[in-house]
């Protein structure tokens, strides 16, 4: 078997947020004497591998650490312990509207988005027409992006991301706002990527869709991998857990 596209090894991420997450000079001086920081362990020793040609899903409750995990894989957040090895060109869609300037037209933002992701101007020039066509935005491409709906935003963002020739794609919830037509189109494009032995890491609360799309999945629970394996199985386990939890809570509420 060839080397994995992403290898996550024993990753720990600890945040030490102050009262309002914005440490200030005064508070920092105060905490100099008695360290009064709250420790949040967002990831607690997470390890797994994503193979080439594989779609890998990540499920878990709010605050489980999914977005943090993706940021570590995107290498914008350095883990406190452990490491991440990435083999291949990566494209990330972690948050909608990132890398775009809403004041500028969609057209200029295609350049901005491409350049942010590491292309040079000539490379964006070559891809420009395809991106516009793929996004299906028509004349809206010349309007400032602040006039776009969230679905239009996501169309353009996805179109740019997929035209960066990624070998690895990280997606965090961003396709949820696309309409049916665009969802189908984006799914088809992602399948093409997988066929070219690219890899996709996919975070979504639409767990049924996620199970259908992904080969394997991991269930993150309070920063730990609770289950990992074939996607349907993991998602089923997660769903049962959530339902059991809800029943317990309801029972407590009644008691």
């Amino acid at each position: 078997m060839s080397a994995p596209a992403i290898k996550v090894e024993n990753v720990w991420v600890r945040f030490r947020p102050y009262v309002d997450r914005r440490p200030t000079l005064r508070r920092s001086l105060a905490t100099f004497r008695h360290k009064e920081t709250q420790l949040v362990e967002a990831l607690k020793g997470v390890s797994f591998e994503v193979q080439k040609g594989e779609a890998f899903g990540v499920v878990g409750q709010n605050g489980a650490g999914k977005s943090t995990l993706l940021r570590v894989m995107a290498r914008t957040l350095r883990p406190d312990e452990g490491r991440v090895v990435v083999r291949g060109r990566m494209s990330t869609l972690l948050q909608l509207g990132v890398g775009f300037n809403a004041q500028l037209s969609g057209s200029r933002n295609i350049y901005l988005g491409g350049l942010v992701a590491g292309l040079n101007k000539k490379q964006v020039d070559e891809r420009y027409d395809e991106i516009v066509e793929y996004s299906e935005l028509g004349d809206a491409i010349y309007r400032p992006m602040k006039t776009y709906s969230s679905g239009m935003f996501s169309r353009l963002a996805f179109a740019v991301a997929m035209h960066l020739d990624p070998e690895i794609l990280l997606l965090d919830e961003v396709l949820a706002v696309g309409d049916e037509g665009f969802k189908e189109k984006s799914m088809a494009t992602m399948h093409e990527l997988l066929d070219r032995s690219g890899s996709i890491v996919f975070v979504s609360h639409a767990v049924r869709q996620l199970a259908d799309f992904c080969d394997r999945a991991a269930w993150l629970d309070e920063g730990r991998v609770r289950a990992i394996g074939e996607a349907h199985g993991v998602v089923e386990e997660y769903r049962e857990f959530v339902q059991r939890r809800r029943k317990e809570l309801r029972a407590q509420g009644l008691a």
């Binding site: 940021r71 990330t92 948050q95 990132v98 590491g118």
Partner: peptide, 9 residues
């Protein structure tokens, strides 16, 4: 901050 949190450069 949004750019920094999400994209590596």
């Amino acid at each position: 901050s949004k750019l920094l949190v999400n994209i590596r450069f």
